[in-house]
Structures are given as structure tokens and as C-alpha cells.
């Protein structure tokens, strides 16, 4: 905090200085204008990309979503008709309900695994721990498609070890991608894929904590558990919030893993499994681009709202994006 605060402080001071001088001196005013020009020049490439690939698609999607295209009627302005349809469409609501349930189950598990791993790795420094750190992080480098496929194979009674494991106990292999089990199987895939990345972020934050605090706590008689949960966890609360935001955004727009497991899941994963898969099906299987735009926009809005509410609720712990 001190470093960032200091940086912001100097920035604020120069800004104030600039404002004071603009009122006084024409040459200084010219300097301020020059500074603004140079600043904008550095930002320009990003501003263009931002306008073309974020603002424009959003505006265009919103525009498209206000029309409906019928076979007989042609394209008609329908105002919020598509949104009314989306939020009463059982397929869209089912997908939305699925990702919300998924977030509620997945995020605590993922956080627990990554936080526990980070705390242990911060406490021991053996070569084995360094090896573990790399191994846990490794799945982040594996494309989501490949990760889902590998687990799909491991779940499969033909390719995977489930059949053998089950026969050891005299049972038949469980169907891990069936209608009842696909939820848990997907939780496992996503946890495997992302826990390492989150672990590294928490670990890096733990490494950045001033160690004199630990010494002080130890002198005061704190044991290892107290040190971990009363001192370390609050010290890295910021990165926990950051991770939660990432996980929330990523999970609500769930697409790749279920899409990849679909061909081998024997119908457990439907074309309306998640909102994004539904939008994809509506756009590319039925060519209803107006309605697909409305679904995308509605999903984006729901995600934005969830994250905003979450950040609002956690703001007391110190906002990440402050």
C-alpha cells in the first residue's frame, strides 16, 4: 500500500501543480497541453482497440438485440422483446441457474485448495515444496480444451482407470458424465485447471508480506495455525478478492469444458447447458443472431452485476481496483 500510495501521492501533487501553473503562465500551459498530447499518444493504440473490440461490439450487440427476425415478417424493431423472451426462456434460465449453482459449489472448493496449498508452500521451503509448487501450477499451461479432454478420457470406462479401480472393489465403473454426475465431474476439471494459478497469486502475495510481522506474532505466542489464519490470510485478503472476481467472471461464462465433453457425454450436456453454449447454439445452429446478441448482452450484464455486487460487499477489506 505504501508504495502505491506514494506513487498516487506524487501524481496528485504534479496534477495540482500543473493546474496551478496553467492559470498563471502561458508557457507552462503549453507544457501541460504538450503533456496531455504525449499521454494520449501513448494511450492511443489501446484506445482504438478498446473502442473497436469492446465498445463497438457491445453497442452493436445491444442494437441488434432490439430487433427480431421472423421468417414471414422480416426484421422488425421489437424494443426489449428479446430480453423479455430471454428472461422467460426456460433454456436460458436453466443455463443461468446451472452456472450460478456451479459458482456456489466450485469457488469455495477452488479457494480452499489454492489457499491451503499456498499457505503450506509459504511455510516450508524444501526442494520438494518447490517441485510441488510448479506441479500444481502446471495445468494453467494446459489449454482448457485439452484439460477437459484428458479428464474426459480418465472418466471414460474404455480409456480411463475407473473400470479397473471399480473392479478392485468388485463394483462396476461409475458413469462419471451421466446426468447426475456431470456437475461434480466438471467441478473437478475446473478446479484442476485453475487452482494452481490462484495458488501462485496467493503465494506471491504471501511472499510479499513483511516478515517482521510474523516475528512479532511469534513473540506474542501465536502458533502456526493462528499465524496462518489470523495474520497471513488477512494480509493477503486483496489477492483473495482478486481471485474470487476472476473465478466469478470465468465461471459465469463457462463454455469450453462442457462444449468439449458434449460429444462424449451421451446427452448429459445439452445445447442449453450454460448461457454461453446456448448463445452459441442459437447463433450458429439456428442463425438467430438477434436473439443470440440479446443472450450475450444479458449474460454480460448479469456477470457485470454479480462482480459489481461482490466488490461492493467486500469493499471494506480494501478494494482491489482502488
Amino acid at each position: 500500500m505504501t508504495q502505491t500510495a506514494a506513487a498516487v501521492g506524487t501524481d496528485g501533487r504534479t496534477a495540482r501543480a500543473a493546474r496551478v501553473t496553467t492559470r498563471r503562465n502561458p508557457s507552462q500551459r503549453r507544457a501541460a497541453r504538450r503533456q496531455a498530447l504525449i499521454g494520449w499518444t501513448f494511450i492511443l493504440p489501446f484506445a482504438i482497440v478498446f473502442a473497436v473490440f469492446l465498445i463497438a461490439p457491445l453497442v452493436y450487440a445491444f442494437y441488434l438485440s432490439l430487433f427480431t427476425k421472423g421468417l414471414a415478417t422480416g426484421t422488425q424493431f421489437s424494443f426489449f422483446g428479446n430480453y423479455v423472451q430471454a428472461f422467460t426462456d426456460p433454456a436460458f434460465l436453466k443455463g443461468l441457474w446451472f452456472v450460478i449453482r456451479f459458482v456456489v459449489v466450485l469457488i469455495p472448493i477452488q479457494m480452499a485448495v489454492s489457499l491451503a496449498a499456498a499457505l503450506v508452500l509459504d511455510a516450508i521451503t524444501t526442494r520438494f515444496a518447490r517441485f510441488a509448487r510448479l506441479t500444481i501450477f502446471l495445468p494453467y499451461a494446459v489449454p482448457a480444451v485439452i484439460g477437459a479432454l484428458m479428464w474426459g478420457f480418465l472418466y471414460s470406462p474404455i480409456f480411463g482407470p475407473t473400470e479397473q479401480l471399480a473392479s478392485l472393489f468388485g463394483m462396476s465403473a461409475p458413469v462419471l458424465l451421466g446426468p447426475d454426475t456431470v456437475f461434480g465431474s466438471l467441478v473437478n476439471v475446473v478446479t484442476w485447471q485453475w487452482a494452481g494459478y490462484y495458488m501462485i497469486i496467493i503465494y506471491a502475495a504471501l511472499q510479499g508480506v513483511d516478515s517482521t510481522i510474523y516475528e512479532a506474532a511469534r513473540i506474542d505466542g501465536a502458533n502456526a495455525w493462528q499465524l496462518a489464519f489470523r495474520i497471513k490470510v488477512p494480509m493477503v485478503a486483496n489477492s483473495l478478492v482478486l481471485i474470487l472476481v476472476f473465478a466469478l467472471i470465468g465461471t459465469l461464462q463457462f463454455f469450453s469444458e462442457p462444449q468439449i465433453l458434449r460429444p462424449i457425454a451421451n446427452g448429459s450436456i445439452t445445447p442449453d447447458f450454460t448461457p454461453n453454449i446456448y448463445a452459441y447454439s442459437v447463433a450458429f445452429s439456428y442463425a438467430q443472431f438477434n436473439y443470440a446478441s440479446a443472450i450475450s448482452f444479458a449474460l454480460g450484464f448479469v456477470v457485470f452485476l454479480c462482480v459489481f455486487v461482490f466488490l461492493f460487499l467486500t469493499r471494506k477489506r480494501g478494494s482491489v481496483f482502488a
Binding site: L58, Q253, N276, S293, G300, V303
Partner: peptide, 8 residues
């Protein structure tokens, strides 16, 4: 969410 931008 960046995927919400894909279809638009």
C-alpha cells in the same frame, strides 16, 4: 466477460 463479446 470477454466471451459475451465473441458473438457480437
Amino acid at each position: 466477460p470477454l466471451t459475451a463479446l465473441v458473438i457480437p
